[in-house]
């Protein structure tokens, strides 16, 4: 049809007819401009994709090659056991701090996101969203300074109370710290730091819940909260998990705030006494003193590799959780 029009209709027939010499279009003649643009764009996109993989490969390669001396020494042979003895408490401390941060931040962040997307009046929700995003813009060293000089002293009486009343519980056993600079304080600071990222990811996904599904629930006689459970949460599940994973990534890797807040030590189950250390803070605090090429430096890079692997595993688990029940995801 279009072809017939091009050749037979008079020039005044429509905007498609050019004022200059009429160029006949045939099937075999393609529009070169479009082809070039497509090729350029697909090339750029592919290059970007490959660059990410190459970068990741180089990071992994650097970490593995420079950490060799932590696992093998010429005098003693394989010293994997020795390394693990050093690394495991740090892994434990990192995971404890991250769990505290996630446990505190995730429920609050989801609550705030829900309030912004479904409960607050439009004007209020915009300003609250703005304030939350501002939280993400604060440098981590500022959080660290705040945690060290304000939050930690403020937590001292709380820790004392926890110790006196809940001391039988392993998490609150042990001598309460006199400075308040414990793993729990660090976890709270981390929670505040990861709150904005989880909030904004969740908010974005909550807002995208199809009106159709919300109305389906409401029309069945759902209250607002029931509607959220029936339509919003199932739709947003994957998004919430990605938000939490992004937050977890930041909590696992956060260095400055933890280095300032936590007065580290050996691994301990008690959250209220001095002790525990996280991998990033350990690296940051000790790297300047480790001589280039020394075994100590290799050891620090090796725990960096361990952190890298933890993050990778956590992300894979998250992917697996999201992809489970794909049939029911609503993506179709």
């Amino acid at each position: 049809m279009a072809h017939a029009n091009e050749t037979t209709s008079p020039p005044s027939a429509g905007p498609a007819a050019p004022s200059g010499p009429v160029r006949k279009k045939t099937l075999r003649q393609s529009d070169r401009r479009g082809v070039f643009g497509d090729k350029l764009f697909s090339g750029l996109a592919m290059a970007a994709g490959i660059a990410i993989l190459v970068l990741l490969a180089f990071v992994a390669l650097f970490l593995s090659s420079s950490s060799g001396r932590a696992l093998y020494s010429e005098d003693e042979g394989l010293i994997v056991g020795q390394f693990l003895q050093y690394a495991m408490p740090l892994v434990g401390g990192t995971i404890i701090a991250s769990i505290i941060a996630l446990g505190l931040a995730a429920p609050v962040a989801i609550g705030v996101a829900l309030f912004i997307s479904h409960f607050a009046p439009p004007r209020a929700s915009r300003s609250i969203g703005y304030v939350i995003d501002l939280l993400a813009a604060i440098p981590s060293v500022v959080y660290g300074a705040w945690g060290m000089s304000f939050l930690a002293p403020a937590m001292v009486p709380v820790y004392r109370w926890l110790h006196e009343n809940l001391g039988w519980f392993p998490l609150f056993a042990g001598n309460p710290s006199g400075t308040g600079r414990t793993i729990l304080t660090a976890g709270i600071v981390l929670a505040v730091m990861i709150l904005p990222i989880i909030t904004s990811v969740s908010r974005e996904i909550f807002i995208q819940t199809p009106k159709l599904h919300e109305e389906a629930a409401l029309a069945l006689g759902a209250t607002r909260w029931e509607m959220i459970k029936m339509a919003v949460f199932p739709f947003a599940r994957a998004g919430i998990i990605s938000g939490i994973m992004l937050g977890l990534g930041r909590a696992l890797g956060e260095t400055m705030a933890v280095a300032l807040v936590l007065s580290g030590g050996a691994l301990t189950a008690s959250l209220i006494s001095t002790g525990n250390q996280t991998i990033p803070a350990e690296i940051a605090l000790n790297f300047p003193e480790a001589g280039p090429g020394s075994e100590r430096q290799a050891q620090l890079i090796a725990i960096g590799l361990v952190l890298f692997i933890i993050t990778l595993v956590v992300n894979m688990i998250a992917r697996w959780i999201v992809s489970r029940n794909k049939e029911f995801s609503g993506a179709n």
Binding site: P234, F235, F328, S329, N332
Partner: peptide, 22 residues
């Protein structure tokens, strides 16, 4: 209104079964 809606059912323009439910 929640009571009203449980007594007056509604079918919408586009089919909207809950996608995450069987």
């Amino acid at each position: 209104p929640v009571t009203v809606r449980s007594m007056v059912g509604m079918v919408f323009q586009r089919p909207n079964p809950f996608p995450t439910m069987s």
